[in-house]
Design a protein around this nucleic acid. Structure first.
Lengths: 239, 239
DNA sequence: CGTGATATTGAATTGCATCAAGCTAAGTGG
DNA sequence: CCACTTAGCTTGATGCAATTCAATATCACG
């Protein structure tokens, strides 16, 4: 139930106290103008496995993640799937030069996003030119990540791919750290890891099993991995 | 030999009559302001195989191609190389959120570029906000291309990769067209094609030989390919 | 016309995929 | 709360696409 009269005020408070603002594109908007931001967005939730936007659909909105993990992927009619990337809180998706989505976005975990209708985003960019600077900069970061991924897919072995993956996502802000080793609590299934790395689940499983045997990582309850020997791991990963 | 007094005027004429302006980021600058653009850039030439910027070097300039083809690549000490992308006239490279180049840029053919020192580009973006819009839009296009490439590298077979490659570059503006079939005059070597597709030269060669045997393409003097049966080719390419 | 760079072709090898069970854990309904 | 169910994960045996190694052919440039 929404009380119209309070909506903007509520939203503004939301943006002001938003936990991802500093890391997100909206950090370009000065604090005193947050009400404009807040009134431009819709807060929406998606459950695990729900599709947020579909490849080929007309691009009507831009999304900023406030909690949860989203995967972007493309697939072929024969079922082959390639995950383009994962997006974490503070990151956005569904920005494009064309008027159609180039990939499907699906919630990997339960997800909360701010949805901005295209026209609202445009208006915001006009009012706050720094927003464009920020979006450009974040897009460049995504481009650099794509370069990493292109190298990984084109030239790395299964073992190198998995090692790179573990290192990369153990650095993600949403992961816990501890003492000397590092923990990765992977929100995604083996299939999703495989579809991200251009491998099969079986291969991912085997490579992980080898790394466990070599005492480089250890696995508890299959989704939480602790990196025991980070030096070896980064040697294997090949950067 | 440069006559200082005439330099700006010459440059302005250069920008005004520039053959790639319409396709390039600088189309965002109004014609009457071209002298500001012209005075911000340095025109530089590079011979085939010359390195323009190197991965890891500090990012000092931004480049816009006016003629020729540039490849962007990353490589590992053991020699494995992955070409991230090719850039054609009207396209830019070396834009990044960080202060270091994320990949090496090398001239595939003789190349002419406009080089913009970072500070000059920033100044231009301040004067002409539409420039940022344009850069953002072109970056999004590069992101979409990266998505294509990620799918190709992760999930396509050698045959599908080569077919996709031929179709993609037969559409590039710098290629000639003709009647029903299409010609691709590839500026790059087999090794470069392989390093782009995540394959070896031998595999590229074999796949091309098969396509010739099946009368889908024909090859004259190894760098010029004509696409005889485009329907089959796009069926093979899997989009 | 000769020489080094580039491209093709063949044979052998291999890393990862595929196919096929089995196992584990997290629900779910009785 | 426990048996049943099922999605997700692991492990093993086999196959095959692409690589590797090796030799030859062709192109391009002085």
């Amino acid at each position: 139930m929404i009380k119209i009269g309070r909506r903007d005020a509520e939203c503004e408070t939301g943006c002001r106290s938003c936990s991802v603002r500093a890391a997100s594109f909206c950090s370009a908007i000065p604090t005193q103008d947050l009400s404009i931001l807040a009134s431009s967005r819709h807060q929406v939730q998606f459950g695990r496995r729900e599709t947020i936007v579909r490849e080929g659909d007309p691009m009507l909105s831009f999304f900023n993640i406030t909690s949860g993990v989203v995967k972007l992927y493309r697939s072929l009619p024969d079922g082959r799937t390639q995950i383009i990337g994962f997006r974490y809180p503070g990151e956005f998706f569904a920005i494009s030069a064309i008027h159609r989505h180039t990939s499907t976005a699906e919630a990997v975990t339960d997800v909360e996003v701010c949805r901005f209708p295209k026209s609202r985003l445009k208006r915001l960019m006009n009012i706050f030119p720094q927003l464009q600077t920020q979006l450009l900069q974040m897009s460049c970061r995504h481009l650099a990540q794509s370069e990493d991924q292109i190298f990984l897919l084109g030239r790395k072995t299964a073992r190198e791919k998995v090692a790179s993956f573990l290192l990369r996502y153990s650095r993600e802000p949403s992961q816990n750290q501890n003492g000397n080793g590092r923990y990765v609590n992977l929100p995604m299934t083996r299939t999703e890891v495989a579809d991200f790395l251009g491998l099969t689940t079986e291969t991912v499983s085997r490579v992980l099993a080898n790394l466990v045997r070599e005492n480089i990582i250890s696995i508890g309850l299959s989704r939480s991995v602790s990196l025991i020997d980070i030096d070896s791991l980064s040697k294997i990963s090949g950067n």
